[in-house]
């Protein structure tokens, strides 16, 4: 990571030097008490998410947790059954769907051109912006290649710069880094963080907790409800009980409160203090999921 990258990453977390929407008394984009049901399946149950400008907010959760549903409500492709959504007009919203939204039978440049024209950019702006973003993403040499022939990482980069090409106020990215190699992932993060430093309010869904840890705020979803929300530090600090590391999976009750990590077993004790491990976001999220399955009273 270069020093510039570090600065950008820091800015993305803190919204440094930028008038954050929430902070300046302006309402952040987002949704309040969103509820979505598909038939009898409740995909989202009273979830609230705030996306301040100049920051990257993360929505984390396992498959089927409701991440995509929440983001789709946010951009307006799905109308919630109840709750309110506050978002900019379509022209100022950018969206990367989980399916990437890229036309495989168009070249990289043609994909960007379509997006620019679709958002009403002038031909000159479109050319300049496309050149700039292609350069940022390192895709300039691939401009003439068919998007369908790009590697997974390159295609995701194209999808991300396509979503941010018109410099939206709110950028919604559904799993931008899933299935992407580590090098491409860091490239993608650099693109995302840079857009945040330029004042964009960004929310992304991810299954990677190390990515969520880099974000200014995190919303943890499980089965359509919010398990935890706040900065990564707040979520970790709010974790009840303590953690210890052991060599083998403990027997009895504790087995349900243990998981394997870094070659050892971590055991969560909901009541005692101390413990020999300082928990991180990943631990806190797992603990939140466990305590939801077996409330503290029964786990004792």
């Amino acid at each position: 990571m270069t020093s510039q990258d570090a600065r950008i990453a820091a800015a993305a977390r803190d919204g440094a030097g930028l008038p954050a929407r929430g902070g300046a008394g302006l309402p952040a984009w987002g949704g309040t008490q969103l509820r979505v049901a598909f038939g009898k399946t409740v995909a989202l149950d009273g979830v609230t998410l705030s996306v301040p400008a100049g920051q990257v907010s993360a929505v984390v959760g396992g498959d089927g947790a409701g991440k995509s549903t929440l983001l789709r409500c946010l951009v307006g492709v799905l109308a919630p059954d109840s709750g309110t959504v506050t978002r900019p007009v379509k022209e100022r919203t950018g969206y990367l769907p989980a399916s990437s939204g890229i036309y495989p039978d168009l070249t990289v440049a043609e994909n960007l051109d379509f997006r620019a024209k679709g958002y009403g950019m002038s031909a000159r702006d479109a050319r300049a912006r496309a050149a700039e973003y292609l350069d940022r993403a390192g895709l300039t040499p691939a401009a003439g290649r068919l998007a369908g022939q790009l590697s997974g990482g390159m295609r995701q980069k194209l999808a991300v710069i396509s979503a941010m090409l018109h410099q939206p106020e709110l950028l919604v990215l559904d799993e931008p880094t899933t299935g992407v190699d580590p090098v491409s992932r860091s490239g993608l993060w650099w693109l995302i963080a840079r857009a945040a430093t330029e004042g964009c309010a960004i929310v992304l869904a991810t299954t990677y907790l190390d990515e969520a840890e880099r974000c200014a705020s995190v919303l943890v979803l499980d089965a359509g409800t919010a398990l935890a929300a706040g900065t990564p530090e707040q979520i970790v600090a709010a974790m009840p009980g303590s953690l210890r590391a052991v060599a083998a999976r403990p027997p009895g009750d504790a087995a349900a409160r243990s998981w394997r990590r870094a070659g050892r077993w971590r055991v969560w004790d909901p009541h005692s203090g101390g413990g020999d491990i300082t928990p991180d976001l990943q631990d806190a999220v797992i603990v939140a999921a466990i305590s939801r399955q077996q409330p503290a009273g029964s786990a004792a």
């Binding site: 789709r72 951009v75 307006g76 492709v77 007009v89 769907p97 399916s99 939204g101 997006r115 679709g118």
Partner: peptide
């Protein structure tokens, strides 16, 4: 099928 319809949906078209 290619998932671009959702992209069209968010564009100001």
């Amino acid at each position: 099928q290619s998932g671009t319809l959702e992209q069209l949906a968010v564009m100001p078209l």
